[in-house]
Design a protein around this nucleic acid. Sequence first.
DNA 1: CGGAGGAATGACAGCGCTGTCAATTCCTTC
DNA 2: GAAGGAATTGACAGCGCTGTCATTCCTCCG
Lengths: 344, 344
Amino acid sequence: MRSPISRRPTINDVARLAGVSIKTVSRVFNREPNVRPATRDKVLAAAESLNYRPNLSARQLASNLTFVVGMLYDNPNGDYITAVQDGSLQACREYGYNLLINPCRADPDTLVDEVIGLQRQVDGFLVLQPLSDLQRLNELLLDNGIPCVRVSQRPFEGFPWVSVADEEAADQMTEYLVQLGHRRIGFIMGHPDHGQSHDRLAGYRRALDRHGIDLDDDLVEQGHFDYESGYSCARNLLSSPAPPTAIFASNDPMAMGVLSAAHETGLDVPRDLSVAGFDDSPLARHAWPPLTTVRQPIVEVARLATEVLMKRLRGEPEGASHHCLQAELVRRPSTAAPGETTFG
Amino acid sequence: MRSPISRRPTINDVARLAGVSIKTVSRVFNREPNVRPATRDKVLAAAESLNYRPNLSARQLASNLTFVVGMLYDNPNGDYITAVQDGSLQACREYGYNLLINPCRADPDTLVDEVIGLQRQVDGFLVLQPLSDLQRLNELLLDNGIPCVRVSQRPFEGFPWVSVADEEAADQMTEYLVQLGHRRIGFIMGHPDHGQSHDRLAGYRRALDRHGIDLDDDLVEQGHFDYESGYSCARNLLSSPAPPTAIFASNDPMAMGVLSAAHETGLDVPRDLSVAGFDDSPLARHAWPPLTTVRQPIVEVARLATEVLMKRLRGEPEGASHHCLQAELVRRPSTAAPGETTFG
DNA sequence: CGGAGGAATGACAGCGCTGTCAATTCCTTC
DNA sequence: GAAGGAATTGACAGCGCTGTCATTCCTCCG
């Protein structure tokens, strides 16, 4: 007589039902090579019908691996973080890994402690911008032999990295503004310590260059990726003797600041001033008027980066050590030809 | 001669060095009673000198505990989620637990699978709104004997819960608008399936009642907590024969929609229309004009809920099964006396 | 001083899985 | 049709810890 107790199914139950050894079940769940497709199917069917999930603790204990990847970040932008988590989780689930989130302060000392403390609790790290650009952190990780994948616009010898074609996207946005008829286009840079800031500026410059428009340094302001700096940079730009007819801010919160400054100055957007952002955060859709911006494939970047990490951890061929994804221009009513309006 | 191999020390190493059995070491590390102080000290000294840390996986496997709590949510609001994660992590770290995030679709069938699949991977769940109001999910969790703490405005017999005094906050906001001189105050409800929506409506009603202001049903619109519904509800309200002089939306994205509708209609905010939101998401500060709203103590709610869960898991006295935290009114330029403006 | 009874400690069997290595099966190839 | 080698599968011993239960050590009292 079999026990009717409903305990969680183990690898033994699956093996028995599938008529194979537990080792074969283990192979299937670890995607090891050399399992006949028919056998694999039998095992998967058995597992499915029992609703079997491998016990992580047992797996960890036996393999001396944790099957957990840590996510290291200090980005305060909630929408960005949840998008990254979303993408990363997709890859994690596919590979049977779990994700341990680790928001941390960029303060180097605390950071070192945290990372070292986590050392045996995770198999590797996904390091997000802007933390991924901290030289000291990267070196620490590398010296301790901890597998990592970086999301960054800059390479760091020793770790694979995933980036977004920021320069190209900024070029496209500038091109679009030029095509609309703008010649005096203000630019608000992001935080100078973030790699992206410089790429976006470079794209802006490249597009202007191509059209033979002189780069007026007075049209470039140094912001910090936050609403407040967008606001004050815009105030500066708009109060200059020859104000721009369009302002391209390096991210959406700064563009929101530009909108506020414009409203406050009594300017109509887009008639008197076109405003463009970068990131396509939910903010952008909810602004008034809705913001023209650049949609970054954040979810895809995170998924890809996590997949690269998984492959690395499993010793599979990793492919290229650098992947670059394309961003996409999103046109909304905050931009128009100078003097025109997008509304009826 | 000691082995020079630098592997991580195990409980056996400590036991040998301390001259006791591994079980005694285990007792010391688990703070079990009935260990002589002298023995305890010997063990701790040995552990210290070896720099021993218990292996989590082994502990988990043997004890059938995971020292991980899962966070179950389907809220798409990134700022809310990161705030919750932040608060929850604070409590987790304090108790030596890890946090496993689990965004999921509210689709009941998938959900059941996910939760059951996670069953032995976590010791308990923190269930967030609005998932925490799904009757079927709560029952599933309860039937499977999984320890949970809910963040919700509604009780569910069997689980402790943490809520925010939404009704009171909505009352305060309405009171504030009345004090400014508004009599026709529009209200946009949230998603009818979310408990909060009804509490906020109740607070609005209570305040009007107190002031003897008749409740005009035409002033209450049914929204869905998103920008779009806020926009269309506001259009309805503003195009009525007797439009309101203030609109109180049940969350910030809807208030953003109200702002857009007002701008589009050519109304000046706050001179022609005061607008108030709820939640104090970053959106609110970045809107034009900045939104008067209600700050919810999200981080604190999450930390408290997680602490309650930890205590429950550790069999410590839990205290009350219901905690309620206060929200706080945040005044910004989007509200003013009718006909007045907040700007110079 | 002997014995009762609680406090302190230990022996040992797993927890559910993976690594190792041996056994078996399946193809080729001539 | 059999040898030879590669592909596939299985048996079994732990991984480091905790639960159970047996054993030993005290302490206190008649």
